[in-house]
Structures are given as C-alpha cells and as structure tokens.
Design a protein around this nucleic acid. Structure first.
Lengths: 153, 153
DNA sequence: TATTGTTATACTCTATAACTATA
DNA sequence: TATAGTTATAGAGTATAACAATA
C-alpha cells in the first residue's frame, strides 16, 4: 500500500531540514569554508549556463532579484564571478564564472561530495538506490517551482 | 546495479537545496507567515520533549548554544515558548511550549503539510513510496550528526 | 575548574519598497 | 510604460569570542 500525500509530506518536512543543515554545516566548516550553499548553487548555475542574466539566476534559485543581486555582488567582489555587458540590451547582465571562481567551486564541490559520500558509503546499496530514485522524483516535483512576481507597486 | 556513494552524494547535493528552498518559501508566504523553518523545528522539538534544556534543543537542531539561545529568545519574546527554572540545577533551562505556541505550531504545520501534500498528490504512488523510503534512510544516515564542540578557549 | 547559558559582534540570506537606466 | 537591475532598509539565522552564574 502506497503512502498518502500527507504521510509523505510529513516525512519530507521532518527529514529535509536535517539533511540540509548537515550540508550547510559541512560547507561552513574548515574543510570547505569558501562558499555557502546559495553561493555554491549560484556559481554552479552560472558555470553550467554561461552568459546568464541576473534574472536567470534568480529564477533558477527561486529568489527575488534584490536577493540575487546581493548574492552575486558578493561573488563578484570576491573575484569569483564577472559581470559583462550584454551586446543587445544594456540593462541586462551577462554573468560568467572566473577562473578563480571555477577553482573555488571545484574545491568546494569536491570537499562536500567527499563528505556526503563518506556518509552515504555507510548505507546499503539498496538504501542508496532508494535515495537516488527519490531525488529524481523530488526534482521533478519541486523544480518547476520558483519565481514569485516582483511586487511592482 | 546500485548507485555509488559519489553518485548518490551528487544527487543529494543538487536536489535537497531545491526542496528546502521551496519549504522555506512556503513558510514565509502569506499562508503561514508565523514561523520560519528553524522556529518551527525548535517549537516542535520542545513540544515533543517538554522540559528540554537549551542544550537539548541545540543538540537536536545541530546549532551552537548562542544561536539556539537567540532563536529561543525570539520565540519566548513572542509568547510562543516559556522558560522555567530547573529544580535541581539553576543553570539549566526547562523549556515549554505555551498554549499560544502550540496553536501557532499547529496552524503552521497544517498549512505547510497541505502545501506539500498538494505537490506530492501530483506524484504517483510509487514515487511517494520511493520518497518515504528514502526519507527513512536519510534520517538514519543524518540524524546522528549535530553538535560540534563549543569553542571554549 | 567545568558546565549552562547569555551578550557582543559580525556576516550571510532573504524580503519589500523605492529607485535608476534602458527599452 | 515595462523591464532589468541596484540601493536602502530590516529581520532572521548563524558563528566565534567573551562573559556570568552556578555546580
């Protein structure tokens, strides 16, 4: 018998924050102190989508433009990302990860994956299969989210 | 063939933040603006573990004592939680959820579960089964985390 | 001296409101 | 007028360092 939506929701609400906190703690720890989770995600997105605008990043991350602007600001001021001019539309940004940003991203990714892999290595193969399957399902359920209208008065 | 720890880690790192952001956004939205995710979790923990000390909460949440102190402070100043004196050890707190805190917790929980249930209702029963199974596995993998030594010089 | 918690300080994350520049 | 982005402001989350009170 399959679990109800309610039961599944309860499980998600209990477990997701716990896993998330663990990931966040790891990223803040000595081993990979360079990027926070949102910084990591933004950098990774722009790396995979070179030339993205700020709005693209905001949409992907499910953040407002001001939040995204500030987030990106921090990355730019640290030399991890670069702002270029868009040829056609001068309002628009073209974002790109710098060489240094890429190296930081890789270091952070390696450290975090190593940390998580060690934990997941203690689980059984069946458990990992469950997890990977569930992540696929969750991705399709949750990724079409994001973007709430900007409150233009 | 079962997925490797590395592959599983990669999936986790991609999907968990997306789901988490969605939950956080929902909690911040008009429908349940009363509690943030950490507030919700702290209140829920103390509700299930009446008389917990601050350290108990910190341990459960994987936070430092100062962070937890501030978090609990906010709940107390809003009348959602109460600090009582411990009979045996006057350094220790005994925390309890107030009636108003309980009602806020219930409202928030209902709204969030309804939101998540609606999303999960669009998934198939098999997908929900995967998800519930994976949450169980993740719980056992990640819940023994928490607590880094306090930096007492 | 060790433990429990608080206060001081600082940064990041995130939002809304108001604004600028460009289209 | 509509769109892309920034700036101003504010509150929550989180940490480390330093402290106070109690054991």
């Amino acid at each position: 018998m399959n679990p109800s939506p309610e039961e599944s929701a309860r499980e998600l609400l209990e477990v997701i924050p716990v896993v998330m906190r663990d990931i966040r703690s790891q990223m803040r720890s000595r081993r990979s102190p360079d990027l926070t989770v949102p910084q990591f995600r933004a950098l990774g997105f722009v790396d995979r989508n070179r030339g993205s605008s700020l709005s693209d990043v905001a949409y992907h991350m499910g953040l407002t433009l001001p939040s995204t602007s500030k987030l990106v600001d921090g990355l730019i001021s640290r030399g991890l990302m670069a702002r270029e001019e868009h040829p056609d539309d001068r309002r628009r940004l073209k974002l790109a990860v710098t060489r240094r940003g890429l190296s930081t991203l890789e270091t952070s990714r390696r450290a975090t994956l190593a940390y998580l892999s060690a934990k997941l290595g203690n689980a059984s193969g069946e458990q990992r299969e469950l997890i990977v399957g569930a992540m696929g399902a969750l991705r399709s359920i949750f990724s079409a989210t994001a973007y709430r209208e900007q409150g233009v008065k």
